[in-house]
Nucleic acid binder design. Structure first.
Lengths: 195, 195
DNA sequence: ACCTGAACACCGTTCAAGT
DNA sequence: ACCTGAACACCGTTCAAGT
C-alpha cells in the first residue's frame, strides 16, 4: 500500500461542477476564486492549474449552463421552433442562480456561450431566411432573452430577500413570450415580403 | 484673509463628473473608488460623503449617460419616432466607454436609468397601443439595445487593443437597425390586428 | 459639511517549492 | 500533474478624528 488515504486531487470537471454548485448557492458576486478553493479544500493557487484565470472558469460555466438543452423536437413550423428554442434557453438560464448574467458577461467577453446562439440560429434558419438575416435575428433574440432573464433573476433575489414587489412569475413568463413574439412577428413580416 | 488657498472641497456633481471622465478613460473594470479618489486628490473615504456606496455612484452615472438625449422631434409616424428614440439611446450609450454596461448593470440592480425606458415607452405609445403592450415592447426594445451596444462596445475595446476582426462600425449600425426593425415590425403586426 | 488616516476584511494572480 | 505557502498589488467600506 504505497498510496496514502487522502490525496484528493481534483480534475477540471470537479472544479467546474463545484463552481456551478457554488454559483447556485451564493450567486455570482460571491463566487470568488478563494471561496471556490475553500469549497474544494484546496489553496486558491491550486485553481490555476485547472483554469488560466477566473474569466476562463466563468466561460466554462456559461457553456455548461447553456449546453444541455434538449432542443425540443423540430416540428414543421419554424416559428413554433423559434419560440420553443427561446423558451428552452430561458429555462436553462433560470436553472442556475445568476445564470443569465454569467452567460451575458461571458458572451460580451467574446468567449463561448455560442451554443445558445447556434440553437436560436438553427431554428430561425428553418424559416428559409438568408444567412445575414438569420444571424442578426438570432443575436437580437439572444440579447432580448439574456436581458429579460437577467432582470427576471435579479427580481428573484429581491423577492427572496423579503421585498415583495407583486407581479408573480407568470407576469414574467408572459412578458418573455410577448418579447419573443414581437421578434417572431417581425421576422414573419420579412418572410411575407419574400413571396 | 481668513481663508487659505487650496481647500478644494468637492461637490457631488464634481465627483460624478470626474467619475464619468475616468470611466471614459479607463473603462468600467478600472473605475475603482480608489482611483476616483486619486483623480479628485482626495482620500477614498471622502467619496462616501457624496455617495453611500459605489452602486449609488454608478446609478448616478447611468442617469447621466442616458439623460441628455434631445429626444428627436416627434413627427407624425410612431414607428419613425421609435426608431429615432432607439438610435438616440444608442448614441448616448456609445458616448462613454462601457456606457451600455453601466446602464445595464444599474438597471438590473433595479436602480435608475428609467429615463431610457420612459423615452422608448413614450415613442411607442404614439402608436396607440394599450399600456401593457407599450411597457413590454419598450422593455424588449431596451434589452435589445443594451445587449447590442454592450457587445458593440466590447468589440471596440478589442479593436483598439490591436486585434483586427473585420466588420467595421457600419455593420454594427446595420445590425442595430435590423434588430430595431424586427421589433417595430412585430409591433406593427399588432396595430393591424386592432382594426 | 467635507475631509484625513488608519484600519478591516477581503480580492485575483504569481511563483518557488514540494510530492 | 496537482498542490502548498507565501507573497504582491490591489479592492470597497467603516470610523474616529480633524477643520
Amino acid at each position: 500500500m504505497a498510496s496514502s488515504e487522502t490525496v484528493r486531487r481534483h480534475t477540471q470537471d470537479d472544479v467546474a461542477r463545484t463552481a456551478l454548485r457554488l454559483l447556485d448557492d451564493v450567486g455570482l458576486p460571491d463566487l470568488t476564486m478563494r471561496r471556490l478553493a475553500a469549497a474544494l479544500d484546496v489553496q486558491p493557487s491550486a485553481l490555476y492549474h485547472h483554469f488560466p484565470n477566473k474569466q476562463a472558469l466563468l466561460a466554462d460555466l456559461a457553456d455548461r449552463i447553456v449546453s444541455p438543452r434538449p432542443v425540443a423536437t423540430t416540428s414543421g413550423e419554424w416559428d413554433r421552433d423559434v419560440r420553443s428554442a427561446a423558451a428552452a434557453l430561458r429555462d436553462g438560464l433560470l436553472a442556475y442562480r445568476d445564470g443569465a448574467e454569467v452567460v451575458a458577461s461571458t458572451l460580451s467577453m467574446g468567449l463561448g456561450a455560442d451554443a445558445a446562439l447556434r440553437r436560436l440560429s438553427d431554428s430561425i434558419a428553418l424559416g428559409g431566411f438568408d444567412e445575414a438575416t438569420t444571424r442578426r435575428a438570432a443575436t437580437a433574440l439572444l440579447h432580448f432573452v439574456l436581458g429579460h432573464v437577467s432582470h427576471e433573476q435579479q427580481r428573484l433575489q429581491y423577492d427572496s430577500l423579503g421585498v415583495v414587489v407583486g407581479r408573480g412569475p407568470d407576469a414574467s413568463a408572459d412578458a418573455f413570450a410577448f418579447g419573443v413574439d414581437l421578434l417572431v412577428e417581425g421576422l414573419r413580416a420579412r418572410v411575407v415580403s419574400y413571396l
